[in-house]
Design a protein around this nucleic acid. Structure first.
Lengths: 228, 228
DNA sequence: CTGTCTTTTCGAACTGGTTCAAAAATTAGG
DNA sequence: CCTAATTTTTGAACCAGTTCGAAAAGACAG
């Protein structure tokens, strides 16, 4: 009787699970062909061969279709993430590998994610990447960055270490935002931004252990504390 | 016959100008009482004593009412901005003064601005702070930061200087975003964030002139170039 | 003052996301 | 099986942002 509560909630029966997927696939097809704004929920339902209301039985809103897509591809890309980390001990290469894998998985639907963004800027919104409903995906992604740090060529000071995976996740979110909105051919601007900033980020992390960096690190920690 | 094209477009007659203001005032009153989402355009029109369509003659969308509010308060706060800059030669004090003035002017309508944010994250959106329609307000704000730098206690290297006002504007936008979404009592978290980061920002600007900072500055400039 | 052109006002109609009460299908207990 | 509870499906209705064509009000030339 109740609608799904969390994004990861599984349907009761295999058949229902299949219906859910059919609706999602129909939606993604239409979104790709015509765009998110140009596709109505009625279109989606019709294309999936169900009534309008059925779509809302499986997804609480139009945007939640996009979130479902996000979650799905995220799970599908697990191998690619693992490969990116296994490919090298250099943190820089690992991170750029993770980012590349992320971009690759969304390549076909780049513009689609702006729909998520619009909902997500409001932290009170259910779909916000900072909110509790998305905790699962978020923590999963943060865990990938933790793994990327483990056994890499970067050693972190004790006080900073626990914050770094989350910081890298924020960096990653920033890059995704830039990428989504980047209309330059083949998203070259994003490419240049990654090239220019990743270097800086990794160097900063490496430098953070140096003795004379203590005061600056303290200040950075104060910033983190302010954000909570 | 055509609807207003830019936000600063002036009505033809004084009477029409007055009607526009009446609608805006009615909207702001209702937004404040009930919130943005709970107020309908029909409510706004009724409260202003006009037909629904009239509201759309003066404002192209519900969100544009919020933008109009943003622009209006921005103009009204010019004195406060000037005072903030005149109060000291310390860049740090000047910037925190500008930020404080900004917060003060939006205090009554903090939550309202999330409506602008949602539209604004999409750079293709007419209301995006990065888009061409908002160029006027944006450049005006950037100009305030340029004035804050002029004759302050911070000297900037030639190559970096032209970028700094825009960078400070971005910092400022980030703080506003944080503030809007900050539900802590009296927005203490934002207060702490400003305290913690402003120090860092100003120190970094001061340090940027030091001879051994050359390579780092080059890298930072590369980042700026990537963003364009 | 009169006819014309532009600006402004009007409110009904359109649109598309979302809800909801009722019906159909499925599952589970006896 | 049969019945009751639960899950799933349905499509009409709701709602609010937005559009639109027509009418009213104003401006202006002759």
């Amino acid at each position: 009787m109740l609608a799904p509560v969390t994004i990861s909630e599984r349907r009761q029966t295999a058949k229902a699970d299949e219906t859910r997927n059919r609706i999602l696939d129909a939606a993604l097809g239409l979104f790709r062909e015509r765009g998110f704004g140009e596709t109505t929920m009625r279109d989606v339902a019709t294309a999936a061969g169900v009534a309008t209301g059925a779509a809302y039985y499986y997804f609480r809103s139009k945007e939640e279709l996009v979130l479902a897509f996000y979650v799905r591809t995220d799970q599908e890309a697990a191998e690619d993430f693992a490969a990116a980390i296994a490919s090298s001990k250099e943190l820089k290469k690992r991170i750029s590998g993770l980012i590349e894998a992320k971009f690759a998985q969304f390549a076909e639907h780049r513009a689609l994610l702006t729909a998520l963004l619009k909902a997500g800027v409001d932290p009170r919104d259910r779909l916000s990447p900072f909110g509790s409903e998305t905790a699962e995906v978020r923590e999963e992604t943060i865990a990938w960055y933790a793994r990327a740090l483990e056994g890499s060529d970067v050693k972190l000071p004790r006080d900073l270490a626990p914050h770094v995976p989350r910081l890298l996740w924020m960096y990653h979110m920033g890059l995704i935002y830039f990428w989504i909105t980047d209309e330059s051919p083949r998203q070259q601007r994003t490419q240049r931004l990654v090239d220019a900033t990743l270097d800086l980020v990794v160097q900063l992390l490496k430098a953070s252990s140096l003795p004379f960096m203590g005061p600056l690190r303290k200040k950075a920690l104060r910033v983190l504390q302010a954000i909570e």
